[in-house]
Design a protein around this nucleic acid. Structure first.
Lengths: 282, 282
DNA sequence: GGCACCGATACCTCCCGGGTATCGGTGCAG
DNA sequence: CTGCACCGATACCCGGGAGGTATCGGTGCC
């Protein structure tokens, strides 16, 4: 199986439309149809049902969508990591660390300081991204190491080391009646129809349905909470960089958030090992 | 990057010889040379040093060897898992479980029995293989799930669940003087020049250097021990299927062996989930 | 210094990936 | 029910590139 075929199939499987997929790939529709047919013939498997006017994935097709994406990420990772290894050999070493924008900033700066103090430390570029993007960046080689937050982020397929665990708090506009409470339960939180949880974009840019406002970043979220249009349950470490017009109340039965440092398995980089060592010593 | 290019590069990187690599790939040498050059040009990276008569890997080349193998495994896995998904959809479901030949046989049979008793259980094909091959089989899709033994096997990149931990014992010919001891230390074991540890083949079929005899499977190993030509440190569960003319002595400071059940991340199979559930309930 | 070895180059062929034009089936509007 | 718009498949053509053979050029060893 060639990566070209995989890329073509993934495009069709995502669009469920040969014309749009071809457009996205920058080729005409007929060659795309033929490539998919050839792929199906070589695999001996029907991947798509073209019944009438709609295209749907077969069982095997959805497996290939998932596995094919993973394989393409692995190929991309090979490409990028090779390029970066060449740069590193040419005297420009460096690590790319990715983490969710606005999370664990305190831990992160402590980590960077601790690592920078080590002998032989290397420049660390920090990449901030939206929720759910980190795993992708780590898998396809755009990043070398990530700070992930269980249970929100999946650590499947990575090596990890736990760094810290923290409870979660409900973030409210200052002066809200609940502010006086010493602790809340999740049922109390979901019983706040006037302050619904905001909706974050999915990796593809669309938003899930629900009552809450759409939100794109942390500043937006805080403003909405301050305006009394939303509330949010966040790890307690968020308090240090919260606006002054917001208050927090511990949520006693919210899941504990564990911050972990994660990296792709089989990493052999000396610099990465040093960073992980520095992290575990924090 | 196309998988063809990756396959070519991996062949050359493993052989460190364009002629042999071309032969292995079933093509002539000149197209192979050109393909590698083109790959280097497209990456903008020198992968191989052709200084005079020998070919060596550059730093970037060794990265691409490791990453490229992983990527090719991922592509193979996509292929195989898609085929198997089609078979499963056609009414022939089934799981392939791989484990080291001669290890954890008791645990394995208990696991298979427990799983078979579950409602909706599916046929489980058991694949036995040599040491170090399991991870490969799991990564490239030839197996769905594995029983691995830490710290011998690496679980990097897989999801795992611990099943049991056991201490290790030294296996000796019956009647050996040490047989009477209640426990040993590793220093006692390495101080047995007359009974050296055997040498197992590496994944590529070659043997490491050392004083011990070469050994290919469990029966060979036991015969060599019975003959007084070798000894071995093995998990204590091996005792149940040991020949009668062998004896065991606990090794107190040998690393604990943990048997884990491992599967590729992102597995969405119902059958696999059932098997893992059965395993954790053992 | 000659020779054997090995990767690179030159040059040719043919397959296959991609393009355009068109067909054929499906579902919706009027 | 009929026409039409939509969409994937087919027919056919073209060009690039992958693969083959012959050969060159550099290196190291006898």
């Amino acid at each position: 199986m060639e990566t070209r075929e995989l890329r073509y199939f993934v495009a069709v499987a995502e669009e469920l439309h040969f014309g749009r997929a071809a457009q996205r790939l920058g080729i005409a529709q007929p060659p795309l149809s033929r490539a998919i047919q050839q792929l199906e013939r070589r695999l001996g498997v029907t991947l798509l049902d073209r019944t009438g006017r709609t295209v749907t994935l077969t069982e095997a097709g959805s497996v290939l969508l998932v596995e094919g994406r993973a394989a393409l990420d692995a190929v991309d990772a090979a490409d990028r990591r090779t390029r970066r290894a060449a740069l590193a050999a040419a005297g420009h070493p460096g690590l790319v660390l990715v983490t969710k924008a606005g999370a664990s900033s305190e831990l992160l700066s402590k980590l960077l300081d601790a690592y920078a103090a080590e002998p032989g430390a290397v420049t660390v570029d920090v990449l901030l991204c939206g929720p759910g993007e980190q795993e992708r960046l780590l898998r396809d080689g755009r990043a070398d190491v990530a700070l992930l937050h269980r249970p929100f982020d999946s650590t499947a397929g990575f090596d990890t080391e736990e760094l810290c665990a923290e409870e979660q708090v409900l973030v409210l506009p200052a002066g809200h009646p609940l502010t006086g409470r010493a602790g809340l339960r999740m049922v109390d939180v979901t019983a706040l129809p006037r302050l619904p949880m905001p909706r974050w974009p999915r990796p593809d840019g669309t938003y899930p349905d629900g009552p809450g406002p759409q939100v794109r970043d942390n500043a937006q979220l805080q403003q909405l909470i301050a305006l009394g249009r939303a509330s949010a349950v966040l790890p307690e470490s968020c308090r240090v960089h919260l606006r002054r017009d917001l208050a927090t109340v511990p949520v006693l039965d919210a899941p504990t958030v564990t911050t972990v440092i994660a990296w792709p398995p089989h990493s052999r980089s000396r610099a990465l090992a040093g960073l992980v060592r520095a992290a575990t010593r924090l």
